[in-house]
Design a binder for these strands. Structure first.
Length: 460
RNA sequence: GGAAAGAUGGCAGAGUGGUCUAUUGCGUCGGUCUUGAAAACCGAAGUACUGAAAGGUACCGGGGGUUCGAAUCCCUCUCUUUCCGCCA
């Protein structure tokens, strides 16, 4: 959640940020937060004063008793009744105001960074990079200064180039089979068996299909380890406190599987356990940035999804994902974020998949993010972009909920960390794109970087 | 699942009703000494809210109660450890 300091320091900026995120009633909500804070402060001041008086009297009673002055002690006792009632009253006022304030703050989203594009929906997301296009990679045409240039899209020229490329690509690829037919043709994935033993959205991977899963997991972990991330294997079931820490609760209660008997939640992403490792922790600055990665199964109820979005591997209830998580100082978090983007982009380049990177608009970003980039791969049989990674900087928003802080080397002050995370990568849509984009008469070509992990150059 | 014991500051570990803003040890930081280091000695050091500051308030697993006063007594919850049972 937002910190009070953020609001006191620049209220207008906070309100403008919330409006950019299309949060209705921003100004009213912020004013209410401030009103409750004033209420809390005055109640606390009154309570503290009464408690100080009370403590003083109590101590004097102890001294009087020790000296055997019983009558004076009894007189002092008589004084405390009114004070006691006052303290209780102010205490109730204080905690009521505090609770109301926290509850309200939990419903207020993070504020976006300045470079986040204005806009209400996915339509307004800004493509910043396109790569791995056939014949002549788009990246050469639009981002000469490096793959993760992350410059703003030049709509006059870049959009035209992208459109042309897309139409060439689509005309070349109209004969390709979608991945669910390829999965059947090569006996890689059985969706019907999954329905039988679990339900829709729980595919069974078989033979080379299962081996491809394992190869991708190992490939992504190997790349993350190479990039300096420490591998974590966390529990995939967490308590409610962890859900609140990273912000899945209370906002997205219905999206998580919940084991009621034990009041535990199946994780929707490794972000939850791996970030919560640092809940209620004060880290030495020398240990930052913390760079962790984890492979886990992820579980999402996906209530309300339907149609082409859930066809085949497009949207599952259980899927494998490798997540990278960073904890950093405010000064360095932006550089950390860029490194993460470069890492994720590198994976897509090594897998030789056509991709684009989008900077999400204010209205399309998640509740907790301050800056978010989505990575999408182009599915050549479905003729659509599939999201395979979302890489975000949460600024201090998550850290404030988590109470994840660090001790600054310079002045020993305890300060909120910045948290960041990103998928690197989610498997199902990568598999979909690999199958569709690499199909040829002989089978399905495995990209060179993946061959050592898969043990073959082709699915036949 | 059954039984017992426990939860105190970075760690270890005292404290069973009144200067406890918690004894002590280790570790950490600063200083003295030293060419430098070690040792020794001296000193410092928690978190949060509040206040311009001095200071005040709260925190000894969580919540509640008794009392003028609770780390300490009572209730309750959670967790941990040990033993037994079951088990990959």
């Amino acid at each position: 959640m937002l910190t009070l300091k953020q609001i006191y320091d620049d209220k207008a900026r906070v309100i403008a940020g919330l409006e950019k995120k299309h949060f209705a009633g921003a100004a009213e909500a912020i004013d209410e937060v401030l009103r409750l804070d004033a209420e809390r402060k005055s109640a606390q001041q009154a309570k503290d004063a009464a408690a100080a008086e009370m403590n003083k009297i109590s101590k004097s009673i102890g001294a009087l008793m020790a000296q055997g002055k019983r009558e004076e002690a009894e007189a002092a006792k008589a004084q405390t009744g009114a004070l006691k009632a006052q303290i209780a009253e102010y205490d109730v006022k204080m905690s009521e105001a505090e609770e109301a304030q926290t509850k309200l703050l939990l419903t207020i989203p993070n504020i976006p960074y300045d470079i986040v594009p204005e806009g209400a929906s996915a339509e307004d997301n800004l493509a910043v990079t396109i790569g791995n296009w056939p014949n002549q990679p788009m990246i050469d045409a639009i981002a000469k200064d490096g793959a993760v240039a992350l410059r703003d899209w030049d709509s006059a020229t870049d959009e035209k180039i992208a459109e042309e490329k897309l139409s060439i690509l689509n005309s070349q690829l109209s004969t390709k089979l979608p991945h669910w037919e390829l999965a059947k043709k090569y006996n890689l994935i059985d969706f019907d068996l999954g329905v039988k033993i679990s339900g829709a959205g729980f595919p069974v991977y078989i033979g080379q299909g299962a081996r491809l899963q394992r190869a991708l997991i190992n490939f992504f972990l190997a790349e993350a380890n190479k990039a300096g991330y420490t591998e974590i294997m966390p529990p995939t079931v967490v308590n409610a406190a962890s859900g609140y820490g990273t912000g899945q609760l209370p906002d997205k209660e219905g999206q998580m599987y919940h084991c009621e008997v034990d009041d535990l939640y199946l994780i929707p992403t490794a972000e939850v356990p791996v970030t919560n490792l640092y809940r209620d922790v004060i880290i030495d600055e020398a240990q930052l940035p913390i760079k962790n990665c984890a492979y886990t199964e992820c579980f999402r109820r996906e209530a309300g999804s339907y149609g082409k979005d859930v066809r085949g591997l497009n949207r599952l209830h259980e899927f494998s994902k490798i997540e990278i998580v960073r904890i950093d100082t405010p000064e360095h978090s932006d550089a950390s974020h860029k490194e993460m983007l470069k890492h994720v982009e590198g994976l897509l380049q090594k897998l030789e998949l056509p991709y684009r990177i989008l900077r999400l608009s204010g209205g399309d970003m998640s509740f907790t993010a301050a800056l978010c980039y989505d990575f999408e791969v182009y599915s050549e049989a479905q003729h659509r972009w599939l999201e395979v990674s979302s890489t975000s900087n949460f600024d201090t928003y998550q850290a404030n909920r988590l109470k994840c802080r660090y001790r600054r080397a310079e002045d020993k002050k305890v300060t909120l960390c910045h948290t960041l995370n990103g998928s690197a990568l989610a498997l199902p849509r990568i598999v979909a794109a690999l199958l569709e984009n690499n199909q040829c008469p002989e089978g399905i070509r495995i990209p060179a970087a993946l061959q050592p992990f898969f043990g073959d150059d082709m699915i036949r």
